[in-house]
Structure formats: structure tokens, C-alpha cells
């Protein structure tokens, strides 16, 4: 499958000498949701800005739908919608006018039916005649999304779309994102809420200090880097792990009433849980409860960024 967005050794050095992107290469597949994760200042927004034409890259190239973002910027930009991190709306303008303006700006003829559908999808139709300054913060964000969608982009960049947004709007937003994905739109989102990326992304790219650390299928990543843990609660406290269980690398809880076992579902040798439980029974240890837990994307992410910093 040909990627819809190709980023090739993209560099950005700001006037003050700060190198925000150190030769980033990245392919984004058609129709996927890619989560771009990274700490503050990692280069997420710079990357998006460079792809959308808001900053001029220092080196490298990028293509959207096969069109170079510098030499064929018209064709490239027509395919792209951008919801920036900061809400920026003209305060005195009415919602419907600002959305119509966006459509025209991207070279599309006026289409009132589409504007209505977009506004309805985002629960903005009732507010169409309101001035943008009269709207609540969440409503303003919806307007920003409507503006980005109304020219029917094939690639949508969402820069921190849910920062400071209430639960209801966040849920609405993911409903819209799901709908867009269903219609074949490619979505690239940056977020601080990693559980969010975990919930909706197909692939995850981790960026830190202007470098892409990895790009991987989310489930594969979690399987590869995630660890599974089994905690066994004991009926009676132990003062040490019995010698017969040495091979399992168990950790005894500080109160002596729990054992923790790390295992891996991807290895070919099985998890070792059955053998462990049989061994426990053979030792005459009575269990009161079992818990299993998988490390979250958040833990994986923090690990990766730490390792990257240590390099």
C-alpha cells in the first residue's frame, strides 16, 4: 500500500539555532489513525506545521498523496485539514460564516448542505448564528474542527485535540474521528493522554527531541514491550520464597502475603503459570486471590523516552 503521507529526512532549525526536527522520516498509511506521542518540546507541533505549510522546513521533503508539500503545495494542501493546538477564531464572526470561509479558502465551491451536515455532526447547528466569542471553550474547539473538515480533507491533523476538553466533548470527538476513519480519512493526532492513543490509534509513533524513536503497530508494540504481571495473594504470610520456587524469579510482597510473577505471552514456551500454580500447591501454599495486569502504553512510552534521553 502506498503511504498517503511520506516524510523524508525532514529537518527544521529555527532562527535561534534550535533544531526542532533532526531529519524525521515517517510513512503514514492511507486510512489509519496514527498517534504521535512525545513529551513537550519533542517536535510534534513543528512536524505538523512543516507538513501543513505553517513553517518552512530547513531540509528534507514531504509528500501528501504523492504531491510535494513545497513544489506542489496546492495539490498537497487541498488534501489536508488541520486542527491546531490553540483555539484561534475571529471573535466577532458568526460560526457559520467562519466555517464557510474555510471551505472557500481551500478552493471549494459553496456547499450549504455540507456545511449544515458538518455543523450538525459537531452539535454546532443550533449555534450557527452565534459569534464565536459567545461560545464556551469546548464549543470553540468544535468550530475549529468544523473548519478543518469542511473542505473534505483526506488527511486530518489533530494537534492535542482533547487538551482541556471535558469528557462529553472528548467522547463526541472520538465519535467524529471514528466516522472519519470509516469514510477513509487518514488521521494523525498528537496527544498527552496516552490511554487515548491506546484506545483509538492503529499505529503509534514516538518522537523525542526531534527524532522519531519508533513507529509501530500499537498491539504489536504493546505485545513486544509490554510486560504481564501475575500477583498471587496468599492466605498465610511467608517470610521468604520457598527454595523449590527459586526458578520462577518471584518477588515476595513486603507484608509476606503476596507473590509477584512476570511472564510473557509472546514466547514459545508458554507462560509458566500452570507449572507455577502446581508448584505452589505442591508446597502446600494456599492462595486467596489472583490478579493479572498488563503494562499500559503509558509505561512503555515513559520507558522509551527515558532510554532515548539516556542515549
Amino acid at each position: 500500500m502506498t503511504p498517503i503521507v511520506e516524510v523524508d529526512k525532514l529537518r527544521k532549525v529555527y532562527d535561534d539555532g534550535f533544531e526542532a526536527l533532526k531529519g524525521v522520516s515517517l510513512d503514514i498509511h492511507k486510512g489509519e489513525i496514527l498517534a504521535l506521542l512525545g513529551p513537550n518540546g519533542a517536535g510534534k507541533t513543528t512536524l505538523i506545521s512543516a507538513l501543513c505549510g505553517i513553517t518552512t522546513p530547513t531540509g528534507g521533503a514531504a509528500r501528501v498523496g504523492g504531491h510535494d508539500t513545497e513544489t506542489a503545495y496546492r495539490a498537497a494542501r487541498k488534501l489536508v485539514g488541520l486542527v491546531p493546538q490553540e483555539v484561534a477564531l475571529e471573535p466577532f464572526e458568526r460560526v457559520i460564516n467562519t466555517v464557510r470561509f474555510s471551505r472557500g479558502l481551500f478552493g471549494r465551491p459553496r456547499d450549504d448542505a455540507l456545511v449544515e451536515r458538518t455543523l450538525r455532526d459537531l452539535s454546532l447547528w443550533d449555534k450557527r448564528q452565534a459569534k464565536t466569542m459567545e461560545l464556551s471553550g469546548g464549543m470553540k474547539r468544535r468550530v475549529m474542527i468544523a473548519k478543518a473538515l469542511v473542505h473534505e480533507p483526506r488527511v486530518l491533523f489533530l494537534d492535542e485535540p482533547t487538551a482541556g476538553v471535558d469528557v462529553e466533548l472528548r467522547r463526541d470527538m472520538w465519535r467524529v474521528v471514528e466516522g472519519l476513519r470509516a469514510s477513509g480519512v487518514t488521521i494523525i493526532l498528537t496527544t498527552h493522554y496516552i490511554e487515548e492513543a491506546e484506545a483509538i490509534a492503529d499505529r503509534v509513533a514516538v518522537i523525542n527531541a526531534g527524532d522519531i524513536l519508533l513507529v509501530e503497530d500499537k498491539t504489536a508494540l504493546m505485545r513486544r514491550l509490554g510486560r504481564k504481571t501475575l500477583r498471587i495473594d496468599l492466605d498465610t504470610a511467608l517470610d521468604r520464597v520457598p527454595a523449590a520456587l527459586d526458578g520462577y524469579d518471584l518477588e515476595l510482597g513486603s507484608d509476606g502475603r503476596s507473590l509477584t510473577y512476570h511472564y510473557d505471552t509472546s514466547g514459545g514456551n508458554g507462560t509458566g503459570i500452570t507449572r507455577l500454580l502446581q508448584a505452589l500447591a505442591a508446597e502446600g501454599i494456599t492462595l486467596s486471590d489472583l490478579h493479572t495486569r498488563q503494562s499500559s502504553l503509558e509505561e512503555i512510552f515513559v520507558d522509551l523516552v527515558k532510554k532515548g534521553d539516556a542515549r
Binding site: 501543513c52 505549510g53 505553517i54 503545495y73 496546492r74 495539490a75 498537497a76 494542501r77 487541498k78 489536508v80 488541520l82 491546531p84 490553540e86 484561534a88 477564531l89 475571529e90 471573535p91 474555510s102 479558502l105 481551500f106 478552493g107 473548519k147
Partner: peptide
């Protein structure tokens, strides 16, 4: 537009 930040849209548009 520069002051309130809406210039982003003009810069990202195919114009």
C-alpha cells in the same frame, strides 16, 4: 489574524 492566530488557516490553505 496575525494577532489572534487565525493566520494559521491562510498559511495552510492552497493559496
Amino acid at each position: 489574524p496575525k494577532f489572534i492566530g487565525t493566520i494559521y488557516e491562510v498559511l495552510s490553505a492552497p493559496v
